[in-house]
Structures are given as C-alpha cells and as structure tokens.
Design a binder for these strands. Structure first.
Lengths: 340, 340
DNA sequence: TTTATAAATGTAAACGGTTACATTATAATA
DNA sequence: TATTATAATGTAACCGTTTACATTTATAAA
C-alpha cells in the first residue's frame, strides 16, 4: 500500500505539502503542485479511508437499513438512492433487518462506531421509537425515514399518499357500480399496508358501501397469499364483486384464482392492486393499480441526506413529505377508459 | 463520542487494558475485566471503526458491485449475500455500475483506499479484464465474480448453467413437436443472455430444428421488449410455433402479445422463459421456465468470500462453480405433465 | 522474609492522514 | 543592498485504536 509519505519522499516534499495538493487547498506553488500530482498518478496513490475518517470524522458513507422481505420494492429504491449518492461521491453501506431489536444494535454500532455520516431507514413495521431514534438524535446524524411511522424530530420522513390513493381507488370502484368491495391486507404491521387499509375503510364509509367483516382477509404481499385469499373470499356469502389487493403481487395471485374459479375479470369480479410493478401492464386483463415512483423515492431520500449532511444539527428541521400517487386505470377494474 | 480513553480513565486503568478486555484476549484479571466491562456498557462505548481499520487493516466490509439494471434479479442476490455476511459480522458496501470505466475507478478506490476486505462483482457484461482484475490481484483481496466471464486467477467465479438449461429447454420443446423455435435475446453483452443463446443455438442444431435467422430477435430483458419482439416475430413468414425468451419478463410480454394477436398459448404458440420469477407461476397460462436460485447464489458468494478472507493470498485457488438449474414445466409450453 | 517466576498492567510507538504553527524562501520596497 | 511582507513549505501533534516491550504486582519456592 502506498502512503502519503511514499509520495512525499519521492517528490522530495513533506507530507503536509502532499496533503495540500491532494485537497487542492491553500497555496501551493504551481510547479510543486504539478510535480507532486505527477507522482500521485504515477504511484496510483489513493488516500486511506480509515486515516481520513479518523481525522475528518466523516466517512462519506450513508447507512441504509431495509427489511428482509420485498426485495423488488427496495431494490428500486436503492437504485434511486445510489444513483444520486454516488454522483456526490458517497457510498452506501447496507444492512438488512431481521428483527427490530437486532436492527437497533446495528444502527447503534454504525452510528457510535463512526461508520456512517447519515442514515436512511426503510422499516415499514418499525415501532420502537426510543430504541431507534435516541442514538441517532444524540449523535447528530441526519436521518431519512421511508414509509416509517415513528415520530422523528429533525429527521425527514418520506411517505406515500397511500391513504388517499386507496380511497380514490374505492371511489373509482364505487363509480363503476360496485357495492361489495373486498380487501386483501398486506403485512400486519406494515405501514403502507395499514394506510392502504385505512383508505379502503374510509372510502367504503364515504361512498356508503357494504362494511361487513367478511370482506376482509389477511395476506402477506405474495402472489400465493393473494391467490389463497381470493379463494377464501369467493367462498363467502355473499361474494364480493370487486377485490382490492394491498399490492400488485397479491392482485396477480387474485387474477389467477379468478381464472381457476372460472370467473371473468372484470365482468364477474373486478380486481385492483397497488404499486404498478412492471408486469402489471402485462397481466390479463391489465391490472388497474396505483403507481409508486420508487426510484424517485430513493432520489428524494438521497437528496435530503445530502442537504442535511453539511448542516449544523441544530438547524435541521423536521420534514414530512407526502408523495402523491397516480392511479393507473387498466382493464381489470372494468373501466372503459384506460389511463397511461 | 466516547473513546477508549474515556473508559480507561473512568476505570482507572490504561487504554491497553481496556483494549484487552475489548478483544477478550490475553490474561486480564477477572476482577478488572468485569469492572472495565461494566463501564463499557455504562458508557455505551463502541470502538471507532476508522481507528480499528487503520490499525488492523481490516474493515469488516465487503464491496458489492452490480449493474444499474435488473433490480429484481440483483436484489434477491443481495439479500442472500447479506444474510450470510451479517451473521458473520461483516457489512456490505454497495456500488452500482453505470459504465465499465467508471466502475474500474470505483473498484480501484475501494481497494487501494482500504475500504473493503473483499469484493463481490456482478457485472454480466464486463469485458476489461486488466482494468478490473489487476488492482485486485495486486492488492490481494478475495474476489467473487457472479455471472462474469472474465478470467480471474485466484478468484471464485459463480456461474449459472445457462447453456445446458437452455439446451434442455430446446430439447423439451423439440420433444413436444416444435421444429421452428424462435429466440428473444436479452442484453447484447450480457453473459447470461449470451450463454442462453448459445444453448439455444446448439440445441437447435442437435435436435435438427430450423436454423433461420428470422427466428431471432433482440430484446433487452423487459416485458415491453418481449412484447414488441413477439409482434415482430409473428409478422415473419413462416411463423415460429414456439418462442424461447431469454428471461421471464420478456416471456410475460410475449404472452401478452399473443393475447393481443388472438393466438392461444400454447396451442398456437408455445412460450417459455428463464429465471422463474415469482409471478411466473401466475401468468396465464403458467410459464414454463428455468428456476434460478438467486438467494443461494448470494449465499455461495458470501461463503466464498468469508472462506478466503483469512487465507493467505498465495493459498487462494481459482474456483469456477457452475450451478445446475432446474427446469420448471408449467402450461405455456403445451406439456401435459407439470413439474414443481 | 527474601528471591525467583509468572501474571497483570502500563507506556509509547505505530497505523495514515490533516493542520496549527514555525520556519524558510521569495518578492516588494526603500 | 538591506529590510519587510508575504507566499511556500516543513514540523509535529493529533484523530482512536492495538501491541511490543517495560514495569509493576502477585504468587510460589526457598
């Protein structure tokens, strides 16, 4: 490993001078600047990050915590984050949560160990406010929470407008004449799932639709659970005329179930989802859903982190950004006009 | 930030002793060990990673390079890697490649800057052997290549048996009576795509099927390209009786195209894919494909890295692991018996 | 109790950078 | 040319750990 003193020696200057040209700060005589620069290139010298971190107390890396499940969802967000962050010379350190307790330990280690300069958390089922936030607040690291419902002073929280979009979807279905709309839940503790459900419930109320308990069934965001849930729902009496699945994967399972049950979608049964994953446009019939701009979400997260990085902790504000979502009307709801 | 000397002071010992109990090495008197331990807990002390890294020349982090595209694919692999690595107290630093040149710079920075202890690369379209490997070899960091065709001495290369599985798929289609099987290419420079194509071509030859150029069309792994490619293919004369798409997303697009063209799948047109993504079981008809064990791939990568981490560079061997793939027969090929 | 030996602890120099301050070289002025 | 003022460079301390080596303390043997 070549160090700064190797460079210094070869250039016959002190390490201080090399450091100066490295940070192209101060006034270094052009002649020496060039000479040292040459040698840096020649030796292919890269400063040691640990030494830098130790000195500067900055690591140029952002921690990223995300749940173990729903790989697709988070992969897109990560790409969004990464693109923006890497352009700004920052790296991403990832850690995937199994359970909340373990996650708190990880965060604590990251922050107190000086491993990261900022933190982005996607923990849709987080609950332990104190365990999660206290170390962060104490350590004055900027934080972005994605789809996370804990109260976080001086942090940026990025939320999808699940509630209104879900309600809007119920509205749409109601407009098409449906009175009995079923709902397939996502994960029990999942923030998005809960908000979507809340929108469904309030929509039901608002448009005076049936509100029986038999219209709800619990899934877990997978195609298989959507399939199974639909089979269950259609055995009930009376049957729903429409199914609102908390995400597209379950909606895809629901469509398959309808096929097996020889029900026509949307004639016998309307089915709608949430997320607008890439294959939603290619189901039969095309899936009516709500588009979630995942990359944009990632981009916003990165932007916020970067903005807060150089800010004095006391200047940071508590921000809550609610991202409006776009309904995508395809055929599976029975609507005539198709959006997009 | 609490440091080791804060602990030392409070415990009235030297930093050396604190360091000793931290690494529970050497012989520390049980009494002092306990006392110091107490204080460490009390102060919630976590050693500074940069100081550790500087001293030990180990960062407990593994670099992970992956392409900008195909988020789904890589997300699963990352989960596989992460699960294994985090259990072994290692972190993942990710970087997403835009182009090869930039990537080489990143790798160089990671390695020479002492940021990582090992590297896992997923660059299916990598070509520049020297630029990529030389710095790694020089720096004696263990390397795992996933689906990457460059020659890498002392590295572990993880490959899918794309070739044989693709050939087997052609075999299967041939058995079902197809003579004119079309192929939708994936990315032009993508390793997996090329291998799958190679298997297709050799299968065609082996089973004496038609070998006309009009049976091939170039896609880019997206549903949209699969759709478009199928439209193109079905305008040609004579039409193929089966389509082999280089991945499932394109196969899904192909199924949709068939629907639009009012062709029955599999009666008028058999369609098969590759990957076995989660929704492949829920298309109509269910998609015949090849299962790719992504998490397992990630697990193997992590395992190899960990194994090589503590090895003397001179002892590392050049390994090439070819992972056999399992065919998944569903309805879209027209087969009677269903596997899985 | 003294002495030899082993165990526990402390001291200080690394690791590879940055930077306040001291020093030296250069340019400007008289 | 001598004297300043200023620009360029060097010196050494520091960031927070680890660890070889030195020193102290405890234990065992005489």
């Amino acid at each position: 490993m070549t160090t700064i003193s190797d460079v210094a020696k070869k250039a016959k200057v002190s390490t201080a001078t090399v450091s100066r040209v490295l940070n192209n700060s101060d006034k270094v005589r052009p002649a020496t600047r060039d000479r040292v620069g040459e040698i840096i290139k020649e030796l292919n010298f890269v400063p040691n990050v640990n030494a830098l971190g130790l000195q500067r107390k900055k690591t140029k890396t952002i921690g990223l915590i995300f749940p173990d499940a729903s790989a697709y969802y988070f992969a897109e967000i990560i790409q969004g984050i990464n693109r923006h962050l890497s352009q700004n010379d920052h790296q991403i350190l990832i850690s995937s949560a199994h359970d909340e307790e373990e996650e708190i330990k990880t965060i604590n280690g990251f922050v107190k160990g000086g491993r990261i300069d900022g933190l982005i958390m996607m923990m849709p089922s987080a609950s332990d406010y104190k365990g999660l936030m206290i170390p962060l607040i104490n350590n004055k690291i900027p934080v972005v929470l994605i789809a996370c419902e804990i109260d976080a002073p001086r942090a940026t929280t990025l939320l999808l407008d699940n509630y209104n979009s879900a309600k809007e979807m119920v509205h749409h279905l109601s407009d098409l004449g449906h009175k009995r709309i079923a709902f397939i839940h996502g994960g029990k503790h999942n923030y998005d799932a809960k908000e979507r459900y809340r929108g469904y419930v309030d929509g039901r109320k608002e448009f005076q639709l049936e509100e029986r308990e038999e219209l709800e069934v619990v899934g877990n965001f997978t195609e298989a659970s959507g399939y199974q849930s639909t089979i269950t729902l259609m055995q009930r009496n009376p049957r729903p005329t429409a199914i609102f699945a908390a995400n597209d994967a379950m909606a895809i399972g629901a469509i398959e179930a309808a096929r097996v049950l020889k029900l026509s979608v949307p004639l016998d049964l309307a089915i709608v989802g949430f997320d607008d994953i890439s294959s939603a446009a290619y189901t039969d019939p095309g899936l009516t859903t709500v588009h979630v701009p995942l990359r944009r979400l990632g981009h916003l997260a990165a932007e916020s982190i970067l903005k807060n990085l150089n800010m004095d902790p006391s200047e940071r504000t508590t921000e809550k950004i609610i991202i409006p979502l776009q309904q995508v009307i395809r055929k599976s709801c029975g609507s005539k006009q198709e959006s997009v």
